[in-house]
């Protein structure tokens, strides 16, 4: 086992992309006519947006596709500067070969600020001759209307269990794995419609044994989940605020979790706790409040502390 399977088994051609048949046939039509508008790929994680963009580039440009395909992740650099520098430079460079244009793939474009999106709109217009944009987003509504109206929108549907199974069977066969029926069910459960997640879990499980059952999969899936988050919540509930805060610092700094991602993990952890359901509801309400205030505030750590101190209060009811 050398490679990361998500990459190893990423479909190379549009035809191999799972489930999105309508999208694929429209994209194939672009390849045939060699003309492409700006595109927007909207849909949940792990449903084939990046894969389709790369496959499209491969079919348009052949083996040298990398030279005419530029990828930028908007969630890493979400300000206006990334549009003014990185993206503009990518757009302004002439395409290589006979393609006539290059593809600029903007991953998680819905993380761009509104200002950045406005700047992007101008860039899209200015360099239409040499560059086509593909914006990948979870929610198309978070993209400003002027850009929406300039792109052809493709909606990627969440994968159904049978599609997850179809793909995972393919991987298992290639890797010589025996996946039990229970293991397959577990894969579908772990995936929640996201092939990336399922593939990662399968790879971790396969490192232990080539026989994969439900048990080994769940263990693999939890290996990819920071156990510390649950401990953080439990510690806060005991009322030891200083200890909880110290754990929080570790998660933010040593572990390096972004505050909003940490909140998502906390949100999940709440439902795994053995506390009364009524308390879970209240805890999740506070998580939501913190999540909202994170956007408003300046220092995320203080907002997260406020969440922990509230958990400490709630914890007193547990006796």
């Amino acid at each position: 086992m050398e490679q990361v399977w998500v990459e190893k088994y990423r479909p190379r051609s549009l035809g191999e992309v799972i489930n999105q048949t309508d999208i694929v046939s429209r994209l194939q039509a672009y390849v045939k006519t060699r003309s492409l508008p700006h595109l927007m790929f909207a849909g949940p994680a792990g449903t084939g947006k990046t894969t389709s963009a790369i496959a499209l580039a491969r079919e348009l440009f052949g083996d040298g596709w990398r030279t005419n395909f530029a990828q930028t992740n908007a969630s890493d650099q979400r300000g206006i500067d990334v549009v003014r520098t990185t993206i503009k430079n990518q757009a302004r460079m002439a395409p290589i070969g006979e393609g006539g244009f290059k593809i600029i793939f903007l991953d998680e474009a819905d993380h761009l600020t509104n200002d950045a999106q406005a700047a992007l709109r101008r860039t899209m217009e200015m360099y239409t001759r040499t560059a086509r944009f593909i914006l990948s987003v979870n929610y198309s509504s978070r993209i400003i209307p002027p850009i929406q109206s300039r792109t052809a929108v493709f909606r990627f549907r969440p994968l159904k269990p049978e599609h997850v199974q179809e793909y995972m069977k393919r991987v298992a066969k290639e890797e010589g794995l025996k996946v039990t029926a229970g293991g397959m069910e577990a894969l579908v459960y772990v995936a929640q419609g996201d092939l990336r997640k399922a593939t990662n879990a399968l790879q971790v499980a396969a490192a232990v044994s080539s026989k994969i059952d439900a048990d080994s999969l769940y263990r693999a899936a939890s290996a990819a989940r920071p156990e510390e988050v649950k401990k953080l919540v439990e510690t806060a509930l005991t009322g030891d605020f200083l200890e909880a805060r110290s754990m929080l610092d570790d998660l933010l700094l040593e572990y390096g979790l972004a505050a909003e991602d940490l909140l998502r993990e906390i949100y999940r952890a709440v439902y795994d706790l053995s506390v009364p359901d009524r308390m879970k509801v209240e805890m999740v309400d506070r998580v939501g409040e913190a999540d909202y205030r994170l956007i408003q505030g300046s220092n995320a750590r203080i907002q997260l502390e406020a969440l922990l101190s509230r958990f400490a209060l709630l914890g007193r009811e547990l006796g």
Partner: peptide
């Protein structure tokens, strides 16, 4: 290398990557 943002790499790639890295020599 794996066509994801840094942030998503942290959440979805790194945990499994680290696990395999620690256990599998060829990897």
């Amino acid at each position: 290398a794996y066509h994801v943002s840094r942030r998503r790499a942290r959440l979805t790639v790194l945990p499994m990557f680290a696990h395999l890295f620690q256990t599998e020599e060829p990897f």
